[in-house]
Design a protein around this nucleic acid. Structure first.
Lengths: 331, 331
DNA sequence: ATGAAAGCGCTAACAA
DNA sequence: TTGTTAGCGCTTTCAT
């Protein structure tokens, strides 16, 4: 396949072809200002004939905002962030905005570098996960004057806009549920808490609620290598090898599913021998032989609301989307 | 939180502050052309002091490529496309490119509209799924002169670059495997084949291989509402209600997992009573009590290779990344 | 209703 | 090694 290296058609060429001025073409294309129907038709005909595609790079430079929204997210491996992007994407596309993204891999330094790179595109807004950023990130964001949305967390101070839920509260709710159900020897299986600050907050809330009720976590297993179904399965195996427990709280549904599979494979009956509790409320947890007990988080809606706030240029605010306890059958 | 509406610092201001010309600042910043160490230090000092962030909108307009790579993908619900984005994202970030994306929801008309919107940003490349596009999409892409990468399919004619695997061949391999294992009464549970052309090609290859061996598909169930674990579970239930089968081929692992859960819940023993076969080789299938029999696809690598071809401006070519049969224990 | 012209912030010759 | 200047393709006054 051969590509001719012809420079793209410009607005000036369209104007020439239509026999009108450049500004007239611009007005017609943006349907802004006044022009006669006849002029409109001639312009549109020329646009069609030449296959003109407006250059938004030039348009943005000449006028106001870029209508580019930058997502700087921790990961794409877990379905959580794709879900957020999905919610945002539909709103952005409907409002002629474009989503740009990059992945930090839960590294705050990397987040700073990526935010800096994003700001060079003069985005309308930068969407981040959570409240924990480096000083440099905050400084650059502030200086940029662009909107900032911190998503999926509410435990902290927002820079501008925040949309999500309280992870601490979700952790507490989880603990209260397990205690109410009568579980007492409770353990935890999670992934790297240093990097995933939201998982850390859930764990904090969970332990806090146990403590408030006069109990304490019996044991915990932190899996290296991030969150995954496999980590969850191996983590639970290691935990059970050394502690006798009647319930385990997992850092999320992926990990919990791994634990669930471990029990199925070993013939550990759920929940009578061991209860399992997750976080996120993934669809798959509704379809397992026993529905997973977990907390459903508003991931798609977080993306949607975040995007709406941005396209409507809403004033600074914090939107609590809450979460929902799913009793399920594993606890 | 209050944002001062100060216009961002420009290169001209930096030049002024550093007491040098604009082009000198430009050279220093891009480390291109020559300048003295002393000049460099003065410029960098001014950049730091003023908090200057280069404007890539202006830079792109003034010079060559945008270093923007546009992904127009069918979906974000299935982990397949996030995996591709993940593979691409690491390469792009390492090469100072940015990823822009939008979601077609498996709609070719929508793809055309989104491609058109993307082209307005004069991207370095447009990354698409598969070979089936509207005429308008092809025309616009050709006219744009930008690179095009069609991903995750090889059964068809590439516009420019193509990276992925043959779905038809994957379907054939799946059928051959089931036949070799001795299964004869084989059914299919899939999602909307009209929109997901790659799933359709797999199904085509599967039936073709059955036919070549003198057999035929006994029954099939097409689930409305797209691919999901739940669809797979319900689809298998409906299929088994009307046909006696010894093996079922699913359109992908999500669907197959649903089928697997159905069997677990109903006490249908796998694979003796019913064999299950999927597609994708998701990690979760390695951790279920019985590992899922499936085909592993190079999703992350597809993204990685696609991005590498683009950043190196490779000549038009087709890269077959192949696939791997995972025997598993469900067939 | 329409056109001319001045930028938007940068890069890339071209001079000096 | 450094500065000057002419665009890049568009939007936006401001005239007409």
């Amino acid at each position: 396949m051969e590509f001719k290296h012809h420079t793209a058609v410009t607005l000036a060429e369209v104007a020439e072809a239509a026999g009108v001025g450049e500004s007239t073409v611009s007005r017609v294309l943006r349907n802004h200002g006044s022009f006669s129907k006849k002029t409109r038709d001639r312009v549109m005909e020329a646009v069609e004939r030449l296959g003109y595609v407006p250059n938004r790079i030039a348009g943005t430079l000449a006028s106001a905002g870029s209508r580019l929204v930058a997502f700087v997210i921790p990961s794409l491996s877990n379905i959580v962030f794709p879900d957020v992007l999905r919610g945002a994407s539909s709103v952005l596309e409907a409002n002629q905005h474009q989503a740009v993204f990059s992945v930090t891999d839960y590294d705050a330094e990397r987040e700073e570098a990526l935010v800096a790179a994003m700001l060079a595109w003069r985005p309308t807004a930068v969407m981040l996960a959570g409240f924990e950023h480096t000083e440099g990130t905050v400084k650059r964001l502030r200086a940029s004057g662009c909107r900032v949305v911190e998503m999926l967390d509410l435990d902290g101070t927002a820079l501008d806009l925040a949309v999500g839920l309280s992870n601490r509260s979700a952790g507490r709710t989880s603990a209260d549920f397990l205690l109410k159900r009568g579980y007492r020897r409770i353990g935890y299986v999670g992934h790297d808490l240093d990097r995933d600050t939201r998982a850390r907050k859930r764990f904090g809330g969970f332990c806090e609620a146990l403590g408030a009720a006069g109990f304490a976590l019996v044991d915990r297993e932190i899996c290296a290598g991030g969150s995954s179904v496999e980590s969850g399965r191996l983590g639970l195996e290691r935990l059970l090898a050394r502690s006798s427990l009647d319930a385990v709280y997992f850092s999320n549904d992926d990990m919990a599913l791994g634990g669930y599979f471990h029990c199925l494979a070993r013939g550990i009956s759920i929940p009578s021998q061991l209860a399992i509790f997750g976080y996120n409320g993934l669809d798959i947890g509704r379809v397992t032989p026993q529905p997973l007990s977990t907390i459903r988080t508003p991931r798609v809606e977080t993306g949607r609301v975040a995007a709406e706030l941005v396209v409507t240029d809403a004033p600074p605010q914090v939107v609590d989307l809450g979460f929902e306890l799913i009793e399920g059958a594993t606890a």
